[in-house]
């Protein structure tokens, strides 16, 4: 079996003295979609924010243990370099309000000062928007501000913005929780298609969504990774009683 793209070994995260993630061990392989589940406050967001080192932006936040991207220790890398390889989509769509749709897609290049020719730019914008299933809707209004779009469109714009950087891993933190059902199903479909090219970690509260979209599921409880397995196994034959309680709707 090929080596994992993301590997956590005895990984811990803290906010000040609060021990948030406890001894996490997880291997994520290429082209898999992982659903990260668990009751609210169990550390899902914290975990994926460790993957692109957004965690350390909070004062006094710290980590211990090993987290590797393609065998390279994430916490030895330059965070700026790392974040270009790990895309992230947030709970609420956050397009840049001063930029057009077009510029929003290539924002990673513009803001990093990476020069592209007009053709390269057009290519990246079109391809990324197509990947995010937004191209048809915005192709004629590319130079309008991104904030004029609907919530669901804005979120797909944010996905396109992340995809434009061609990330090794895409992180989605409850990316559909602020959206209407139609937008949600569009994004779910999108994730299905994206998995051919990318590796995806998605935090979700929605059990059906996890079941529909993911190949693997990691179940967190009180900062511990209780169970990680094929989504089918987790939903049909959970090993741990907490997992079972959760998927049968006893808490959370």
């Amino acid at each position: 079996m090929e080596s994992p793209i993301l590997k956590a070994t005895n990984f811990n995260a803290f906010f000040g003295k609060n021990h948030i993630l406890k001894n996490i061990n997880l291997e994520v392989h290429k082209n898999n979609v992982w659903a990260i589940m668990g009751p609210s406050g169990c550390g899902k967001t914290t975990f994926i924010r460790c993957v692109n080192r957004m965690h350390e932006l909070v004062p006094n936040a710290s980590v211990e243990g090993s987290l590797q991207l393609k065998g390279e220790e994430i916490y030895d890398m330059n965070p700026v370099v790392l974040r270009r390889k790990v895309g992230m989509v947030f709970q609420r769509p956050n397009p840049f309000p001063t930029m057009s749709i077009y510029d929003n897609v290539i924002a990673g290049y513009i803001l990093n000062g990476i020069k592209l020719s007009k053709m390269e730019r057009d290519d990246i914008v079109e391809t990324s928007l197509k990947q995010a299933a937004l191209w048809m809707e915005v192709r004629s209004t590319l130079h309008k501000k991104g904030t004029f779009l609907s919530g669901g469109q804005q979120q797909r714009l944010c996905i396109a913005r992340a995809l434009a950087m061609n990330p090794e891993i895409l992180l989605l933190d409850e990316a559909t929780s602020a959206l209407d059902p139609i937008s949600t199903s569009m994004i779910e479909e999108l994730i299905q298609q994206l998995k051919a090219e990318y590796t995806i970690l998605m935090v979700t509260h929605n059990m059906q969504q996890a079941a529909r979209v993911s190949d693997k599921t990691a179940f967190f409880y009180l900062g511990e990774l209780i169970e990680a397995a094929n989504t089918k196994t987790i939903f049909t034959n959970p090993k741990h009683e907490k997992t079972q309680e959760y998927i049968t709707g006893h808490f959370g």
């Binding site: 957004m54 932006l57 700026v80 790392l82 840049f96």
Partner: peptide, 23 residues
């Protein structure tokens, strides 16, 4: 300005100083 704006930029691998000056 919302924190999410800064995070959007940082998550794209934009260094802090460029995030401030350009976003």
């Amino acid at each position: 300005l919302p924190e999410s704006l800064k995070e959007a930029s940082l998550a794209l691998g934009v260094p802090y100083y460029k995030t401030i000056m350009k976003v």
